[in-house]
Design a protein around this nucleic acid. Structure first.
Length: 809
RNA sequence: GCGGACGUGGCGGAAUGGCAGACGCGUUGGACUUAGAAUCCAAUGGGAGACCGUGAGGGUUCGACCCCCUCCGUCCGCACCA
C-alpha cells in the first residue's frame, strides 16, 4: 500500500464529510483535548510538533471512538520576539513572515491527519483575537489586577532598549555585547500575587504530573515568618522579614537592599559618598550575576544604627546586595551565628557573632542553621523551634512591633514589552488625566503595519506618529498612546477559552459556549511551560471567574507532558549540532501514519529520547504485515463458526487481551505498549491463520477488531483497510471494540512454583481451584513431591493465577 | 548549594511487591531465490555448568527493578527568597 497516496485521499474525504469537528448537536459527553498551540517562528513543523500532536491525536481519536464528543482545536501563538528579530535581520515584515509560516504549517498539520477542528482555528496576531486580549487587559485593570509601577529592567545603554532576560547573555547584550545595566522604568504589571494562595492550594485538585505541581509550588514559594520593626535613631523605622524570629536575640546588624527607600536617607554625612558609590555599583550588576550565591558578598556601612525591639541592643545598619529589594520588606535582620549568608558577611566585615541557638544533644558549630534550643534570650530560653518562634512572634505583636506574616516568592507579572510584534497595550497617557484605559468600544487598538521596527533606542511604536497621537477619552485633549505591547504570554493565557467561541464579535467568548466545552479535560504540551504559561493561564481563569465570566476554578484538569526527541547522537536537536531530523523526509518516504506510529512506539511518551532511523523501518514492516493478513482474511469466502477449540480460544484470548490492554494504555498515554499489544495481536492472527481447519467467522471478526484498534494510531491506513474489507463509513465513527470478559477467562493458568522463593518448575493449574486446592495440587507435582518429601511445609504463599511459594524447613 | 526525576541485554524500551527483559531493532542460523532485496521460520541477558544478573552497598519481606537508608552517575528545575 502506498501510504502517501492514500493519505491525501482520506484527508480529503474526512474534510468533505466534516468528520473531525465538535458536534454541537450531540448529547454525547464532551471531551476537550488540547495540545499547546504552535509558535510559527520556523517555517516548518519539527519532530517535536509531531511528537506532541501525533500521539495526542491518537488519544483524541480513541476517545471519540469510545463515544465522546471530542473537541480538539488548533491555532497559532503568532506574536513574539523571534518574528521580530527575524525581521530586524532580514527586513521581512513580521506580519508577512508570520502569515507565510502559518500557511505552511497549516498544510503540514493537515498532512499529519490529526482530527483538528479547523473551524475553531485562532491566530493570536489577528485583530479579531488581540482585540480581546486587550479587552482582558482592561478587565484586569478595572478589577485592580493591572497596575503601573516603576521596576528594574535590563537595559542596554548602547542599543538604548530594554532586553528580555533571555536576551542578556552572561551579563551582556546579545546583539552588541555591551554590559547590560538595571534601570528603573514604569511598566504594567498583572497582580498574580493576589492569587498566590489559591494558585498554590488549587494544585492539589489537579491531575498533573507531580513534578510540574512541585515546580509551581516552589515558584510560588510560600513561607511563614514574622515581620519585625527596628526603630532607628533617626526616627525612621526599618521593617524586616524573617522566618527565624527565634534567633532575634542574635541580631548583630541590620541589612537593607541597595534599592531600599531608606538606603540613602540613613547614610551619615561621612558615609554618604561610600553609600552612593555602592548603590551605583549595585545597579550595574545584572540580575543573574547579583543573585549568584557563589559570588562573594559585598556591602557598605550606612553609619546609622537601629534598635532591636526585643533586647534594646543597638546594631549597625548596612547595605548589601545579597538582600533583595523585591522580596519581603527588602530588609533583613542579620544573625550571623545562625545564617550562612550573614555568617559569611559578618566574617568578612568583622561584625560580631552571637550564638542564641544550641544544637540539641550535640556540639554546636557555627553557623548553625537548624532548629535548636534557644539560649541567651531572656524568658525564651529553653524553647525549641516552632514553639520558640510562636512565643517570640506573640511578644513582638504585643510590643506593637510587627507579627506573623506569610510571604511568597512569586512576583507580579511584568507584561510591558518595548517591542513591536505584540498586542498594543490599550492605554492612553493624557497630560491632564494620567494613564487612561481605552474605552472598550474603541478596541482593538490596531497594531500599525508601517513601523520602523529596527532598534534605535525607542519602542518601535513610539516612533509612529499616526499610532501615538490620539485624544484623551476622558477630557478630549491631545494625548499619547502607550507605546508598549503585551508579553505574548498574555495572548496564550486565554486562547483555550476563545476556541470555544472563536468567531464571537461581541465578546471574547460566550459564557454558555465556554461552559459547554471547558475546562480542558486533557492538555498536552512541553514541560518547559511549568512556571510560565501554565501558571499564567491558571491566574487568568481565576481572575475571570472572580469577574463573573466563568464558573470553574482551573483551566486544565489533566496535564500530560511529552518528552523531548533528541538527535540520533543523543543531543538536543540544533543547527550547531547538525543533528536535526526533518519529519518531512520521513513522511515523504514512509507516510504520516508510519511516522506517527514510530513516534508512539519508539519512546516512552513522557521521556522522549534519541531518534533512530531503524525504528521507522520496523514500523513500515509492521504496517505491511497488518495489511497482508487483513486483506488475506478479507478474501476468505466461507462463513463458518466452527471449530472452537484450544486454538480458537487462544486467538480469542489474544484479541480480547489486546482490546483490553490497548484501551488502558491509550487512556494512560502509554503509546509504546499500546503498539506492542497491536503487534502481539497481529502475531496471533498470523499464527492462527496457519491453522488448517479455520474458524473463518472468528478470524474475520478478529481482523475487523484489528483495524478498529489500529484506527486511532494509523488513521489513514485503517480507513483504507476498512474500506477494502467492505466496512461502511469511517473507522472514527465505529465504536472502539469492547472486550469480552468471558474470552479472557482461562480454564487453567500457568503458575511458577517456588520452594523457599526459588523457582523449581512451572505448572498449569485449573483456574477454579481455591487456595488449599492449589497447594495440594502443587504438592502432588512430582518435582515438588520429590523435594518436599519428609520435610515440613511451614508456609505456602499462593498468588492466584501467578505463583506458589512453599516455605520448607 | 537546594529540590526533583532517572539509572534494566549490543540498542529503543516492558514489568498492580510475585516467572526480570513484553514488543521491537540488531545479530546468528535456516527456508524461498540463478543471485540479491523483500518475505517467512527459529534462536538470541551472561555463563560449559551448578549458578549469576535491574548503577554500588545495606535494610524490610516468604518474595524487591519496585518500599526504606547510604553512596555514585546522568538529566532537569530553582538558585543569596532571610
Amino acid at each position: 500500500m502506498d501510504l502517501k497516496l492514500i493519505e491525501k485521499k482520506w484527508q480529503q474525504r474526512w474534510e468533505k464529510a466534516k468528520l473531525h469537528g465538535f458536534d454541537k448537536k450531540s448529547d454525547a459527553p464532551k471531551l476537550y483535548v488540547l495540545e499547546m498551540f504552535s509558535y510559527p517562528s520556523g517555517a516548518k513543523l519539527h519532530v517535536g510538533h509531531w511528537y506532541n500532536y501525533g500521539p495526542a491525536d491518537s488519544y483524541a481519536r480513541f476517545k471519540r471512538m469510545q463515544g465522546y464528543n471530542v473537541f480538539q482545536p488548533m491555532g497559532f501563538d503568532a506574536f513574539g520576539l523571534p518574528a521580530e528579530n527575524y525581521a530586524i535581520k532580514t527586513g521581512v515584515h513580521p506580519k508577512d513572515s508570520t502569515e507565510k509560516n502559518i500557511a505552511t504549517m497549516e498544510n503540514q498539520l493537515k498532512a499529519m491527519g490529526a482530527m483538528f477542528d479547523w473551524s475553531a482555528e485562532i491566530k493570536t496576531c489577528g485583530e479579531d483575537y488581540y482585540k480581546w486580549t486587550q479587552w482582558m487587559f482592561l478587565q484586569l485593570y478595572k478589577k485592580g489586577l493591572s497596575y503601573r509601577k516603576e521596576a528594574p529592567v535590563n537595559w542596554c545603554p548602547s542599543c538604548q532598549t530594554v532586553l528580555a532576560n533571555e536576551q542578556v547573555v552572561d551579563g551582556v547584550c546579545e546583539r552588541c555585547s555591551t554590559q547590560v545595566v538595571r534601570k528603573n522604568l514604569t511598566q504594567w504589571f498583572f497582580k498574580i500575587t493576589e492569587y498566590a494562595e489559591e494558585l498554590l492550594t488549587g494544585l492539589d485538585t489537579l491531575d498533573w504530573p507531580e513534578k510540574t505541581k512541585n515546580m509551581q509550588r516552589n515558584w510560588i514559594g510560600r513561607s511563614t515568618g514574622c515581620e519585625i520593626e527596628f526603630p532607628c535613631e533617626s526616627g525612621d523605622k526599618i521593617r524586616v522579614y524573617t522566618t527565624r524570629c527565634d534567633t532575634v536575640f542574635g541580631v548583630t546588624y541590620v541589612v537593607l537592599a541597595p534599592e531600599h527607600p531608606l538606603a540613602r536617607k540613613l547614610a551619615t554625612p561621612e558615609q554618604l559618598p561610600a553609600v552612593e558609590a555602592y548603590i551605583e555599583e549595585a545597579s550595574k550588576a545584572n540580575e543573574i550575576e547579583r543573585l549568584s550565591s557563589t559570588r562573594e558578598k559585598t556591602g557598605v556601612f550606612t553609619g546609622s544604627y537601629a534598635i532591636n525591639p526585643l533586647n534594646g541592643r543597638r546594631v549597625p545598619v548596612w547595605l548589601a546586595d545579597y538582600v533583595l529589594a523585591s522580596y519581603g520588606t527588602g530588609a533583613v535582620m542579620a544573625v550571623p551565628a545562625h545564617d550562612e549568608r550573614d555568617y559569611q558577611f559578618a566574617t568578612k566585615y568583622g561584625l560580631p557573632i552571637v550564638k542564641v541557638i544550641e544544637k540539641q544533644g550535640g556540639e554546636t558549630t557555627l553557623p548553625f542553621c537548624e532548629d535548636g534550643i534557644v539560649v541567651g534570650s531572656l524568658d525564651f530560653d529553653g524553647l525549641v523551634g516552632e514553639e520558640a518562634r510562636d512565643a517570640i512572634a506573640t511578644q513582638i505583636s504585643k510590643l506593637g512591633k510587627g507579627g506573623k506574616k506569610i510571604n511568597y516568592r512569586l512576583r507580579d507579572w511584568l507584561v510591558s514589552r518595548q517591542r513591536y510584534w505584540g498586542a498594543p497595550i490599550p492605554v492612553i497617557h493624557c497630560p491632564n488625566c494620567g494613564a487612561v484605559p481605552v474605552p472598550e468600544k474603541d478596541l482593538p487598538v490596531r497594531l500599525p503595519y508601517d513601523v520602523e521596527f529596527r532598534p534605535d533606542g525607542k519602542s518601535p511604536l513610539a516612533k509612529h506618529a499616526g499610532f501615538m497621537e490620539t485624544v484623551c477619552p476622558v477630557c478630549g485633549k491631545p494625548a499619547q498612546r502607550d507605546p508598549d505591547t503585551l508579553d505574548t504570554f498574555v495572548c496564550s493565557s486565554w486562547y483555550y477559552l476563545r476556541y470555544a467561541d472563536p468567531n464571537n464579535e461581541k465578546a471574547p467568548f460566550d459564557r454558555a459556549a465556554a461552559d459547554r466545552l471547558l475546562p480542558v479535560d486533557t492538555y498536552v504540551g512541553g514541560a518547559e511551560h511549568a512556571c510560565m504559561h501554565l501558571l499564567y493561564a491558571r491566574f487568568f481563569t481565576k481572575a475571570l471567574r472572580d469577574m463573573g465570566y466563568l464558573d470553574f476554578d482551573e483551566p486544565f484538569k489533566r496535564l500530560v507532558h511529552q518528552g523531548v526527541i533528541l538527535g540520533p547522537d543523543g543531543n538536543r536537536m540544533s543547527k550547531s549540532h547538525g543533528n536535526i531530523v526533518s519529519p518531512d523526509d520521513y513522511v515523504n518516504e514512509y507516510g504520516a501514519d508510519a511516522f506517527r506510529l514510530y513516534l508512539m512506539f519508539g519512546f516512552s511518551y513522557t521521556e522522549g529520547g534519541p531518534w533512530n532511523d531503524d525504528g521507522i523501518k520496523a514500523i513500515a514492516r509492521f504496517l505491511d504485515r497488518v495489511e497482508k493478513i487483513v486483506l488475506k482474511i478479507g478474501g476468505y469466502k466461507a462463513k463458518r463458526d466452527e471449530p472452537y477449540g484450544a486454538e480458537e480460544k487462544a486467538l480469542d484470548y489474544a484479541r480480547n487481551f489486546a482490546i483490553s490492554r490497548i484501551a488502558k494504555d491509550l487512556e494512560a498515554f502509554s503509546f509504546n505498549t499500546a503498539v506492542a499489544r497491536l503487534m502481539e495481536f497481529v502475531n496471533a492472527l498470523y499464527k492462527y491463520d496457519g491453522v488448517e481447519n479455520k474458524n473463518v467467522s472468528l478470524l474475520k471478526a478478529a481482523a475487523k477488531d484489528l483495524i478498529l484498534l489500529i484506527g486511532p494510531c494509523a488513521p489513514h491506513f485503517a480507513d483504507e483497510l476498512w474500506e477494502q474489507t467492505g466496512g461502511k463509513g469511517f473507522v472514527l465513527e465505529q465504536p472502539f471494540p469492547r472486550e469480552d470478559p468471558e474470552a479472557l477467562r482461562l480454564d487453567e493458568k500457568e503458575y511458577a512454583v517456588q520452594i523457599n522463593s526459588k523457582i523449581v518448575c512451572k505448572a498449569m493449574i485449573p483456574s477454579d481451584l481455591d487456595r488449599d486446592a492449589v497447594e495440594a495440587f502443587v504438592l502432588a507435582l512430582p518435582e515438588i513431591a520429590a523435594r518436599t518429601a519428609g520435610k515440613a511445609v511451614k508456609k505456602c504463599v499462593v498468588v492466584p493465577g501467578r505463583l506458589v511459594n512453599l516455605i520448607v524447613g
